[in-house]
């Protein structure tokens, strides 16, 4: 289980990295944290001719937390992002979600942006990014651009990143003080990829859900926004059981879950409503 041969390049600047990607296109793979890429290389599921290791680009290590929100450069590791977010807001969605990403030794190395760029539909962070209206910043030969997470994730392991572009950072806007977060997932073992998970937030004023966002992972080829369920909850009181029931029914109806080899769509739909119930419970709890 050894990688196929490749050439290894470790540029020192974003510009140099982008130039390499522009030169080699699909022949190149970007190595950031490597916690997903390295197994794929070892199993020879992917065999890039060029490996562009961005870990020498010091500028990508920056993270900032300010009134606008959180910004994580492409080399900010899960463990460091978690520590920073937790210090700022222990109830934040990312503070809740990141401990579910694999195990500590993986989180020491894996990066937030790497998880987004990979776009594994079963992973936590793409769903969180969609839920939080995060923006992914890309650098290419023509300069930089930002895409909303919703626009960034296209399908199974595919994103709007062009082959000559590098994900250089993610920006998570700060949400209002009335925002409540919810996160849960169902996994056979702690740290496993979830069978199904839900990243959520709600704007709660006077015990009433003014607005909410429900994003499932493990449910389809990309993070799945449960828009009908969101609509069912919008305007409802937090303890309005009938609204919860309508939302659960909406989830059952709207989630066209891809059955995987191990867990059928019926089972996953049952999990989807169970998760919704738990999330509403989290919203109710003081945050």
């Amino acid at each position: 289980m050894k990688p196929a041969p490749f050439h290894y390049l470790a540029p020192a600047t974003v510009e140099a990295a982008v130039a390499l990607l522009a030169e080699h296109g699909d022949e190149a793979a970007v190595l950031a944290g490597g916690q997903s890429l390295m197994p794929m290389l070892a199993l020879r599921l992917t065999a890039p001719a060029i490996l562009v290791d961005i870990n020498r680009i010091g500028a990508l290590e920056r993270q900032s937390i300010d009134a606008a929100g959180y910004s994580f450069g492409a080399l900010v590791r899960h463990a460091d992002a978690w520590a920073a977010v937790r210090a700022d807001d222990p109830a934040h969605l990312l503070a809740r979600a990141l401990p579910h990403v694999a195990h500590q030794a993986i989180r020491h190395r894996g990066t937030i942006c790497g998880s987004l760029a990979l776009a594994d539909p079963a992973a936590e962070l793409p769903a969180c990014a969609v839920c939080l209206d995060a923006e992914i910043e890309l650098a290419g030969p023509a300069g930089r651009r930002r895409l909303t997470a919703d626009a960034f994730f296209e399908g199974l392991y595919t994103t709007a990143r062009r082959p000559d572009e590098l994900v250089v950072g993610v920006h998570v806007p700060r949400l209002g003080p009335d925002t409540r977060f919810g996160f849960d997932e169902v996994a056979r073992r702690h740290g496993d990829y979830a069978i199904l998970g839900l990243a959520a937030r709600a704007l709660v004023v006077d015990g009433c859900i003014k607005d909410c966002r429900l994003v499932y992972f493990g449910a389809g080829a990309r993070p799945v926004v449960a828009t009908a369920a969101q609509a069912a909850l919008k305007g409802a009181a937090l303890d309005d059981g009938h609204a919860h029931g309508r939302a659960a029914a909406a989830v059952m109806g709207e989630l066209a879950i891809d059955p995987d080899l191990r867990y059928g769509a019926t089972y996953k739909r049952q999990l989807a409503t169970a998760l919704l119930k738990r999330i509403i419970g989290q919203w109710k709890a003081p945050q």
């Binding site: 490597g34 390295m38 290791d53 500590q104 190395r109």
Partner: peptide, 13 residues
């Protein structure tokens, strides 16, 4: 100073 998986890094890194 931090634990990592030795199989998930290249020696070069």
């Amino acid at each position: 100073g931090r634990t990592v998986r030795g199989c998930l890094m290249l020696a070069m890194q």
